[in-house]
Nucleic acid binder design. Structure first.
Length: 270
DNA sequence: CGCACCCCCTGCCGGC
DNA sequence: TGCCGGCAGGGGGTGC
């Protein structure tokens, strides 16, 4: 589910309600996530106040008073949502942060590919390898050039490499390559300057559009208030194999790259 | 270095 | 109506 736009949407929806809130108690129902939840998770969070929420790629980082921070990742199926304290428990509710004012932050994740972890900044090694944010800076051909230089791998794999760029997943990699007119299979180092220009522009447009529309709700994405996103209505190629290209009506093709479904128009994308 | 191929896990969908 | 295979927005590990 969650790529950069979805994670950013969740961050924004939680920010106002969570900053300043105190964690009164913590309930963990299932410790077996991507990494097991450590034994001291609850005690290190209890009594802490949330000061801010930041995003690193697809990770959310909750600043707390004291030295610890809370790191969360939603994997494929994770949700973080605010509920009233007496709301009924749901299937796959794994972690509940019981806050003041009768509210609860719930981490729900059917597939358990997500992550919740408390630690000092230096201990949270997951985020140390996350590359620069594709939205934070103004990307350009000059800025992309060193990333593609000498790399024979398909450009789509490179876009999704979280150590090179933090936050782009399968949906948005496909969509930005469509808008840039570049096939996902193109070797990164063969991209010409004008193609890198187009790609930089497409990265920004796709991600800002997606954030503005609250992310993509393909099956069940919801923000921290349970609201869906609407960028799925703008998807030109993702999961549209066989459908006509919105621009030229050529049927969209599906190929597999690095084990992930990849979609493109063979006429509009070269 | 970067790939293919495995794993983790639940849910859903289409074919039979 | 089941059952089964394939697939799904994630990351990580292995071996080549």
């Amino acid at each position: 589910m969650p790529e950069l736009p979805e994670v950013e949407t969740i961050r924004r929806s939680l920010l106002a309600k969570l900053t300043g809130a105190t964690i009164r108690s913590v309930t963990v129902r299932e410790r077996r996530l991507r990494r097991p939840i450590a034994r001291d998770f609850e005690s290190r969070l209890r009594g802490r106040r949330v000061l801010n929420i930041r995003r690193r790629g697809k990770y959310l980082l909750f600043d707390l008073d004291g030295d610890d921070r809370l790191l969360a990742h939603l994997g494929m199926s994770g949700r973080l949502e605010m509920r009233s304290g007496n709301a009924p428990e749901e299937l796959h509710d794994h972690v509940r942060l019981n806050l003041d004012r009768g509210r609860t932050l719930v981490f729900n994740d059917p597939r358990r590919f997500g992550l919740m972890r408390v630690g000092q900044p230096t201990e949270l090694d997951e985020i140390h390898h996350v590359g620069p944010d594709p939205l934070a800076a103004e990307w350009s051909a000059d800025r992309l050039r060193p990333l593609v230089r000498g790399r024979r791998r398909p450009i789509k794999n490179l876009l999704m490499d979280q150590t090179l760029l933090g936050g782009i997943g399968n949906i948005y990699a496909n969509e930005m390559l469509y808008r840039a007119g570049i096939r996902p299979t193109r070797r990164a180092r063969t991209l010409r300057r004008r193609e890198l220009d187009a790609l930089a522009g497409a990265m920004r447009r796709v991600l800002t559009d997606a954030v503005r529309l609250g992310g993509s709700s393909i099956s069940d994405f919801r923000d921290g208030d349970g609201r869906p996103g609407y960028f799925q209505l703008q998807l030109a190629v993702y999961d549209r194999a066989g459908d006509p290209c919105p621009r030229c009506r050529t049927p969209i093709r599906r190929v597999v790259l690095a084990g992930r479904s990849s979609f493109y128009c063979r006429r509009c994308q070269r």
